[in-house]
Nucleic acid binder design. Structure first.
Lengths: 301, 301
DNA sequence: ATTAGGGATAGACATCGTCTATCGCCACAT
DNA sequence: ATGTGGCGATAGACGATGTCTATCCCTAAT
């Protein structure tokens, strides 16, 4: 049985006339007659009662028509829904974001994304890098915003912006009077995040593996970390986008001597079909953050 | 788009594996892959994300699946309903019956019909011969029980039984003492039905066009006619199956001298597809009425 | 009786679905 | 590093089938 045949059947039943039904279907009368005949043979029932001059649907045909209409309607729905979804810049898009980025980046880019890609329903998903990569590979995410390079050939990444690290100090800290802070000095009482945060590894890498006092104090979130620094437990290193939050917490921010930072990327599966959506999202975020690195570094003085 | 392709799509989405999906569909893996690919091109969207080692339905595919399942389910419903209706001895059957037959025949044949053809839902439709023929030709009836021969080559008829006419007399009537009544005598004060009843024409034909007293009294129904005879307004001629009702009304019944009667037929369109149902109904009625003519004639003495 | 309309039939042609065989890719194991 | 196996894609051949035009047959109406 074929959807085409069902359309022929509908036309024949509605027109009550094979010739006109065929015309409505854009085929010749013999074609429609033959297909209807085949359908009757396949179903094992007579669908039309033919007499020399006229034709009428049988009782059985009338009983089938409801299902036939429903099947054809569902087929049309498939075509319509597919047409709506043909635009890769539409529909749900699950975007992973690391926790040290999400709270500070999302407020900046949400409105521009909605404006530039109104049909795209972006669902943010916050998790650490390893979790995001796993979900990305499991196709539970469509893309992810990471601060590390993709770790395999099955994933692709596009840099969006560079985010400088800043030294975050309690106002009374001895380094707070410097205009620029050297990483080695910051390392003396550096507090870091808990395991799994890429920022933890990056902070330790930038400052050398000091982490004296803070060794035991592994904050679960950047927000916690900031409060701990504000309370005088030590210093830390924050990503530039968190500058506002750090200042709100009463911290003093200083550029680093080496201008170290991290490169934020959007990462996706190489085979992902909606690369256009990835491109568009990346473009909006990169555009919003363009020139951010310099501004952030300058604005902290 | 094709129902077959939709079944392939369903299998692929549910198995998450082209090879196993193809096996489930009873086709080879390349065939399924090619059809899925074509479907993707027709819909203009990617349905599956392929990677060297695995495959997964896209977001768009998942959104379509509901409609796909619905369409396939409707198609299956069409097949199932058709299978149920493949039996011509099942389903609704609209059977026309003339008014001088219906009230007396139906009680006799209803139970045998239900027993012999349990799946056939017989819908009786009572009307005069002309109305039944019109509805039959308009395909609003599937067959009709008539007491006349079909009036055209587009209709076929099969005789079911012969129904003798009986003279129906008030007990005090002068003819009531006879064992057999001659039609000419009956004609003297014969009451007949209203125009349109075939029995009216037949009674007049049998008795000659007398109809003296009854000329103005054209009863709309046989039941009315019986009551009028019982009230002494005249005599009448009734079909054998109405004997019981006539006796209940207190009438005396006598066979006619010429053993005149009418032949009851089942009539249907020559092109009607469910001839088997007509045959079966006719057989049940004929079987139930077999030997009725003799019995009725004998039983009235 | 003739004519026109409507459906059925026949035969040719092209499309398309399906198969087998093979390739290419990727992951995993030795 | 290298082989191996699983899985999907591709190629080419073959057969089924949907479609067309031309024609026939039947019926009803003039």
């Amino acid at each position: 049985m074929n959807l085409r045949d069902l359309r022929y059947l509908l036309a024949a039943a509605e027109h009550g006339h094979f010739g006109r039904a065929a015309e409505a279907c854009g085929i010749s009368q013999p074609t429609l007659s033959v297909q209807i005949r085949k359908l009757e043979e396949e179903l094992g029932i007579a669908l039309f009662e033919r007499s020399g001059r006229s034709m009428a649907p049988t009782e059985a045909c009338l009983r089938l028509l409801g299902h036939v209409r429903a099947a054809v309607a569902e087929a049309d729905a498939i075509l319509a829904v597919a047409r709506d979804m043909r635009d890769p810049l539409a529909g749900r898009f699950r975007l992973g974001i690391i926790p040290t980025l999400a709270p500070y980046l999302l407020p900046l880019v949400f409105a521009p994304l909605r404006e530039a890609l109104p049909a795209l329903e972006i669902e943010p998903w916050e998790d650490q890098t390893a979790g995001l990569l796993a979900r990305l590979r499991a196709r539970e995410l469509d893309a992810a915003l990471l601060a590390t390079e993709p770790d395999g050939a099955d994933l692709l990444g596009r840099p969006l912006f560079d985010e400088p690290f800043l030294a975050a100090l309690p106002p009374e800290h001895r380094l707070a009077s410097r205009r620029i802070v050297a990483e080695e000095e910051l390392a003396e009482d550096l507090l870091v995040l808990a395991d799994g945060h890429c920022l933890r590894d990056q902070a330790l890498a930038v400052c050398g593996h000091g982490g004296g006092a803070g060794g035991a104090l592994r904050a679960a979130s950047l927000s916690t970390l900031l409060n701990m620094v504000a309370a005088g437990y030590g210093t830390t290193l924050i990503p530039g986008l968190a500058a506002g939050a750090a200042q709100d917490a009463g911290l003093v921010l200083r550029p680093l001597a080496t201008r170290a930072g991290r490169r934020v990327r959007i990462v996706w599966r190489a085979r992902f079909p909606r690369q256009a959506a990835v491109e568009a999202i990346g473009e909006v975020i990169a555009g919003r953050l363009r020139g951010f690195a310099e501004g952030a570094a300058a604005g902290t003085i």
